[in-house]
């Protein structure tokens, strides 16, 4: 089946501007149920064939939306996430980039104990291939149904990884872009747990990055996993102390280095890939060794 999204997924898009409309169209073409859009003040309109409402609550009540996809501009994104949680949506996926850290501190604290799960922000979203359920911005052509789950901090590295897997003849259950910001809703560790518990996922690719300690926390969980994990850490050659685009990717202290993360993952039993071009080939080898391919 995959994680987070399935054939029952009903997506509401918050922030139905240019990007929101385009991705609504792409998801509808793919076969995803995009049931409503939310743009305050435009309630009642029909844009790209999608009914627009003023509030998320209306989209839930009228159209049974259960997943929110957020494109709202950064200064208003925290408000949008909390609105979605308050409307009771199970899964909230925030694409928006550039949200202030202080806003995310508040969001993260608000969501503690809530039944809503936030993915992102600053992420490419989630797709479950077999269900044609897409809540994100990923190109769908590279995906192929199968049994490998993909987790990544970076959006484009999700596409790159999935492309390599598909070219190697390995299909995917779902991909989850957890996001490149310092404070994110769902961590790599939590995403691993979702795939570990998904009966259709046989193996997982984990794409980490320099900075922070999220990969070490993921490694801690890998120790107790039954499924094989292939991991790559981007930024092994980045000079320390320089910020490489992702706010999360500034190396602070030794724990943040690629080497420290690679060691932790290897010690936990993951297969660590040194070159990003070898992800697909390595997964193929791991699956073969286990009699899974």
């Amino acid at each position: 089946m995959g994680v987070l999204l399935d054939e029952n997924t009903r997506v509401v898009i918050q922030g139905f501007g240019g990007a929101g409309q385009r991705e609504a169209r792409n998801s509808l073409d793919y076969g995803t149920k995009v049931v409503a859009g939310v743009t305050p003040g435009r309630g009642g309109q029909l844009i790209e064939g999608v009914p627009i409402r003023n509030t998320v609550r209306q989209a839930v009540d009228e159209f049974g939306a259960n997943v929110s996809l957020i494109f709202v501009p950064a200064p208003f994104a925290a408000d949008a996430i909390i609105e979605a949680a308050d409307a009771g949506l199970a899964t909230i996926i925030c694409i928006t980039e550039g949200i202030a850290i202080r806003d995310m501190v508040g969001v993260k604290r608000y969501l503690r104990g809530s039944s809503s799960r936030l993915i992102g922000p600053n992420c490419p979203g989630v797709i479950t291939v077999a269900s044609h359920a897409r809540a994100g911005i990923m190109p769908v052509d590279v995906y192929m149904p199968g049994s490998v789950g993909v987790i990544s901090r970076s959006g484009t590295l999700v596409y790159e990884t999935v492309d390599q897997l598909t070219r190697a003849g390995i299909g995917q259950t779902s991909s989850v872009g957890v996001g490149g910001d310092p404070i994110i809703g769902t961590t790599q560790r939590e995403a691993l747990q979702l795939f570990e518990e998904d009966p259709d996922t046989a193996a997982i690719v984990l794409i980490g990055e320099i900075g922070g300690t999220a990969e070490q926390e993921a490694a801690d969980y890998i120790k107790q996993m039954t499924k094989p994990v292939v991991a790559f850490i981007a930024g092994a050659t980045a000079p320390p102390g320089r910020r490489m685009g992702h706010a999360g990717a500034i190396i602070a202290g030794k724990a943040g280095t690629a080497q420290a993360k690679q060691s932790a993952l290897m010690a936990a039993g993951a297969t660590v890939v040194q070159s990003p071009s070898q992800i697909g080939a390595t997964m193929l080898q791991v699956l073969k060794e286990r009699g899974l391919a």
């Binding site: 970076s154 484009t156 790159e160 794409i207």
Partner: peptide, 26 residues
Amino acid sequence: VNGAGLAMATMDAIQFEGGMPANFLD
């Protein structure tokens, strides 16, 4: 490159092939 992660991975791949990147640009 587009995307910070792919940009870092590109630098890594260049170094893996024996080269050295002159910049990071997302």
